Simulated scan of single mutants.
Amino acid sequence: MDRDADGMRFLGDAHGVSAQGKTEMDCNLESRVLREGAGHMIKTTEIPIWERYTLSVAEAAAYFRIGESKLRKIINENKGADYVLWNGNRAQIKRKQFEKYIDDCGVI
């Protein structure tokens, strides 16, 4: 079995392939890996941006190709909109709802 820099053993990914032998599906799922260390199983999953429910302002700006300043202006003008989720004072963009908003408006 392979070991990472911390000496933890790789048990393989969700498809039973070692960390070095990634398949196309692994790349699409962005490396789902199980590791064993100190008696604990740790499962880490990176969700692709196009499958995430919410996006940070920076992620949404990159995804929708809208500047962060423009996106923050849209959020501040529509604080109660269904596509905005507030985590304390941080706005998260609900991806699908914001896609509908963009589809419905002609100009941003």
Rank of each mutant, 00 (worst) to 15 (best):
M41H: 14
A60S: 06
H15A: 11
L55K: 03
E99T: 13
Q92E: 05
I47E: 03
G67S: 11
N76W: 09
A62W: 04
E99I: 13
H40W: 15
W86T: 06
N89L: 03
G88R: 06
N89I: 00
R95W: 00
R9L: 01
N76I: 02
Q92M: 12
D26Y: 02
A19R: 09
V107N: 04
I74D: 01
D26M: 02
E24Y: 09
L55P: 07
K79W: 08
L85T: 09
K43Y: 15
M41K: 14
K73E: 06
I74T: 02
K94G: 04
F10R: 07
R95C: 04
A61D: 06
L85M: 12
A91I: 02
E68G: 01
K96Y: 08
S56D: 10
E24T: 10
A14K: 13
I47G: 03
G21F: 09
K79E: 02
C27Y: 14
W86V: 00
E24K: 12
A62M: 08
R90D: 12
I74F: 00
D104H: 01
V17H: 15
E68A: 00
A58P: 06
S18V: 06
K70V: 06
G88L: 00
L55I: 09
E36Q: 15
K79T: 06
A62T: 00
D26C: 15
T54V: 06
D13K: 03
F64K: 03
R9K: 12
M41S: 10
Q92H: 08
G80V: 01
V33I: 15
I42Y: 14
G106Y: 02
C27K: 14
C105G: 05
D13S: 07
S69K: 13
S69A: 07
F98R: 07
A60N: 11
E59S: 09
S56T: 14
Y101W: 05
K100Y: 05
L85I: 12
D104F: 04
T23P: 01
A60Q: 10
D103M: 03
A81T: 10
R9A: 11
E68W: 02
A58Y: 08
R3P: 06
I108A: 07
N78L: 04
V33R: 15
I66C: 00
K100Q: 01
L71W: 11
R35Q: 14
M41Q: 12
R35H: 09
H40K: 15
Y83K: 08
L29H: 13
E36H: 02
R32A: 11
V17A: 05
W86F: 10
L55V: 10
L34M: 13
E51I: 01
K70Y: 09
G80E: 05
G16M: 11
R3E: 14
G39K: 01
Y101I: 02
I66A: 02
R95D: 08
K73P: 09
G12Q: 00
E99P: 00
N89C: 03
Y53V: 13
I108M: 02
V84M: 05
V33N: 15
K100E: 04
T54I: 07
N28R: 12
G16F: 03
E36N: 13
V84G: 07
D2L: 13
A38R: 14
Y63W: 00
T44E: 15
R52Y: 04
V107P: 00
D13C: 12
